[in-house]
Design a protein around this nucleic acid. Sequence first.
DNA 1: AAATAATTTAACCAATCAGTTAAATTGAAA
DNA 2: TTTCAATTTAACTGATTGGTTAAATTATTT
Lengths: 210, 210
Amino acid sequence: MVDDKQDTEKLILEAARKVFIRKGLDGARMQEIADEAGINKALLHYYFRSKEKLFEIISSKEISLLFPTISGAILSEDVPFESKIRLIVDGYINLFLKHPFLPLFILREINRDPDNIKGIFEKSGVDFGFIHNIAFAKLAEMLNVDTDGARHFMVNLLSLCIFPFAAKPLLEKVLFNDDEQEFVLFLEERKIQVADFIICAIKFKQFGNS
Amino acid sequence: MVDDKQDTEKLILEAARKVFIRKGLDGARMQEIADEAGINKALLHYYFRSKEKLFEIISSKEISLLFPTISGAILSEDVPFESKIRLIVDGYINLFLKHPFLPLFILREINRDPDNIKGIFEKSGVDFGFIHNIAFAKLAEMLNVDTDGARHFMVNLLSLCIFPFAAKPLLEKVLFNDDEQEFVLFLEERKIQVADFIICAIKFKQFGNS
DNA sequence: AAATAATTTAACCAATCAGTTAAATTGAAA
DNA sequence: TTTCAATTTAACTGATTGGTTAAATTATTT
């Protein structure tokens, strides 16, 4: 046997991740996951009882990937806000370059079962009360805007980082004639472009209004 | 009979739209569409032969909704670029306020069948050659950036308009404690916030660099 | 060697679902 | 009234799919 002993479990989890991420819960087939893992359906159910159980495991793991990036930047204390923005944008775009199908997967999950996502967030240590009461107030102070302005800022940042990956197949076609390499370069560029874009918008609002 | 004669077809199309838009092709059930339309499955197949045919009709119509907004703004000649931006942002956010599930539907379709979307765009009169060779050059000139800068600008604009709707259920929870009304107000505000954001970013890049 | 766990094979079950069919019913038009 | 299209009812087919089962096989451990 080529593979080591019982990391069959890991094999299955990796296969399930690939299939679920690309096709979602509805679109995924247990047979396809078994094939991807190079095993058979019986063994798949031998390790993980049901599709739903397996999906729960995968989706929790994937959704949990989102937090370290943003919480890491927010918790860093002695860093000027420009650098924080660059940190977050870099973190997310790098994350999605490694996991290109994660954005759409998350968006599908958000709409399929919003409560589940909130639960996973909380299990990952995300404190919604804190975000609501403290984090946004702090962010608002930092940006010199009101709470609502902080919300728009946050949504803008997430939009700019996440959307291009969710819309990748179309943007690739329209902007780069289906040349994936060029599109990946474009996404790499965005680490700087997006951060600049956000920083410029903030600065102009603060200082300039000719 | 309450309904007029044979606008049963319209009834079915509207029901199919609702179901497909919320659940996608995989998640939708023909029985559910029939129920939503207040008819039975036999009649549904009597009007539209297959699920795929019906889906094709719906998805074409929905995807076609995206164009008037942006092409209208681009084709308007005597309008300063700031106003064009406001026109596009207003147009899209209004469109999505009316069709809240459209963004996620489009994103799903983009990833499910990218070629199909391109085809639908072309059938709607969108000329990819023109976009590639002329529109982006013109846009770049207007913004005083290179072609690549124009691409980033376009992607930024689309990101800021589309993403918040695709992520609505989660943002609503996290930012507004599940208060939908407040979230809709937030989205209304974004018509101005996003346009300002984009315009500020452009202006600061052009004029300011303290 | 014996016992135990991992894996395969292959058939099977039950549920779901798209799509069909045929007969009956209703309603409008001729 | 006859005709014909629209609609319902209800049963059915066939394919897919999640999940099970039992027996055989292979590998590991004791």
